[in-house]
C-alpha cells in the first residue's frame, strides 16, 4: 500500500497455516477438559452400576450447585481482573442469617430469603468500597472481609449453632423453625429435578447472557483486559468493578440459601469449605473451552467435573479426605491448560 486509499485486502492469517502438531495442541487446549470430563463420566458409569442411577447424577449436581453458584460470582470478579475470596464466608453468613431470621425471630421463609440476599449485597458493597474507593488490592481486601464476615457470622449466633427449639439468652425457647417452604429449596423437586439444581442452571444461563451477550458484561471483560484503555473509552471503571463485587456477594448469598436449606439449621462452620471449591471451579473454568479467560460455561462445567470426580471416587470407596488432593490436582492440571499451554500457543 503506497498512495491512494487502500481497499481492504484479504490476507491469510498465521493461525490458518498452523502445522498439524499445532492443530492437535489447539484441539487439546480447546476440548481437552471436556474430553477428560466425558471420559471420567464414562469410566465411572461403566465400572460402577450405582453411578449410572439418575438419582446419583442429580445428587451430584445438587452437591456441586453451591460451589458452582459461588464460582459464578468469582467468575464475574475474575472478569474485571479481580478476585473475590469472601464468597465462602458470605455463604456461611447466609446460613446464619437464615437461621436467625426464621428460628429466633420467627419469620417466614420469604423474609429469610430477602435478609440473606441483602446481607450478601452489603458484603459485596463493603468489598467494592475497600477495592474501588480505598484502592486495596482485591485479593487482600476480600481476604479481610472473609475474616470479618466469618467472625460476624459467629457473633450473630453467639458462637453456637442455631437449632429449632433451642434455649435463647433470656431463657425462653426459640419460637421459630426452618419453614417447610425454605427447606424445599434444596430438598424439593420440580418435574423430578431438585430446585437447587434448577437454580444453578437458571443462574448459569442468566450469568452467561449477562457476561457474554450484554454490553455490561462486555465492559467487565474490557476492564479486566485493559483498565486504562477502558477508562479512556469513557467507561466508569470503578462503578463496574463495584457492580462485579456486589453481584458476587449476592450470588454467594444464593449459595448460602441453598446451604441453609440443605443443613436445616444454623451451622456455624457452614460455608468454610466452599471458598476453595468456588475459586477452584472458576479457575478450572478459565481453561475449559481453551478460552484462557474466565467464562460462565467453563465455570459450570468445571463444577460438574469436580462433582463427577467426587461422587465417582466416593462410590469407588476412596475416603472423603482424599478428595481435596484430587480436587487440587484437577485445579493444577487446569491451570497448566490455561497458562502454560495457552501461553506457548500465543508465543
Amino acid at each position: 500500500m503506497t498512495t491512494a486509499q487502500s481497499t481492504p485486502v484479504k490476507t491469510a492469517t498465521p493461525s490458518t497455516t498452523a502445522t498439524p502438531a499445532a492443530r492437535v495442541q489447539n484441539a487439546v487446549i480447546k476440548y481437552g477438559f471436556i474430553f477428560v470430563t466425558v471420559a471420567l463420566f464414562l469410566y465411572f458409569a461403566l465400572s460402577e452400576g450405582s453411578f449410572r442411577e439418575s438419582a446419583t447424577l442429580l445428587d451430584t449436581l445438587r452437591y456441586v450447585s453451591v460451589a458452582a453458584i459461588l464460582g459464578l460470582g468469582v467468575t464475574l470478579t475474575l472478569a474485571v481482573g479481580g478476585m473475590d475470596m469472601s464468597v465462602g464466608a458470605v455463604a456461611g453468613l447466609g446460613v446464619s442469617v437464615a437461621a436467625q431470621t426464621m428460628v429466633v425471630y420467627n419469620q417466614v421463609g420469604t423474609v429469610a430469603i430477602i435478609a440473606v440476599l441483602a446481607a450478601g449485597a452489603v458484603v459485596g458493597l463493603l468489598n467494592a468500597l475497600l477495592i474501588v474507593v480505598l484502592k486495596i488490592p482485591d485479593m487482600l481486601a476480600t481476604l479481610g472481609t472473609l475474616f470479618i464476615v466469618q467472625g460476624l457470622k459467629l457473633v450473630l449466633v453467639d458462637g453456637q449453632s442455631i437449632t429449632p427449639g433451642m434455649t435463647l439468652d433470656d431463657g425462653s425457647t426459640a419460637p421459630g423453625k426452618f419453614t417447610e417452604g425454605f427447606l424445599k429449596i434444596d430438598r424439593g423437586t420440580v418435574l423430578g429435578i431438585p430446585i437447587s439444581v434448577l437454580v444453578f442452571g437458571g443462574l448459569t444461563i442468566a450469568a452467561w447472557v449477562f457476561l457474554a451477550r450484554t454490553r455490561w458484561g462486555r465492559v467487565l471483560y474490557a476492564i479486566g483486559a485493559n483498565p486504562e484503555a477502558s477508562r479512556l473509552a469513557g467507561i466508569r471503571v470503578g462503578a463496574y468493578r463495584a457492580l462485579a463485587y456486589v453481584l458476587s456477594g449476592v450470588l454467594a448469598s444464593v449459595g448460602g440459601l441453598i446451604l441453609a436449606s440443605r443443613i436445616g439449621q444454623g451451622d456455624v462452620s457452614a460455608g468454610t469449605s466452599q471458598l476453595l471449591e468456588a475459586v477452584a471451579v472458576a479457575l478450572v473454568g478459565t481453561s475449559v473451552l481453551g478460552k484462557g479467560r474466565p467464562n460462565v460455561w467453563g465455570t459450570a462445567l468445571g463444577a460438574v467435573l469436580i462433582g463427577i470426580i467426587t461422587t465417582g471416587l466416593t462410590i469407588k470407596g476412596l475416603p472423603y479426605y482424599t478428595q481435596d488432593v484430587v480436587e487440587g490436582a484437577v485445579l493444577i492440571l487446569a491451570l497448566v491448560f490455561s497458562f502454560t499451554l495457552s501461553k506457548r500457543r500465543t508465543a
Binding site: T214, R215, R218, A225, S230
Partner: peptide, 29 residues
C-alpha cells in the same frame, strides 16, 4: 497498546467499545 486496544478482542469489538450503548438494545449487544 497501553491506552486504547483491548488485547485478544476482535477489530469490531475494539471499535464499538466507546459507543457500545448505541449497539445494544435492552443491554444486549
Amino acid at each position: 497498546h497501553a491506552d486504547a486496544l483491548v488485547p485478544g478482542w476482535s477489530l469490531a469489538q475494539n471499535i464499538s467499545l466507546p459507543f457500545l450503548k448505541s449497539f445494544s438494545r435492552l443491554g444486549l449487544v
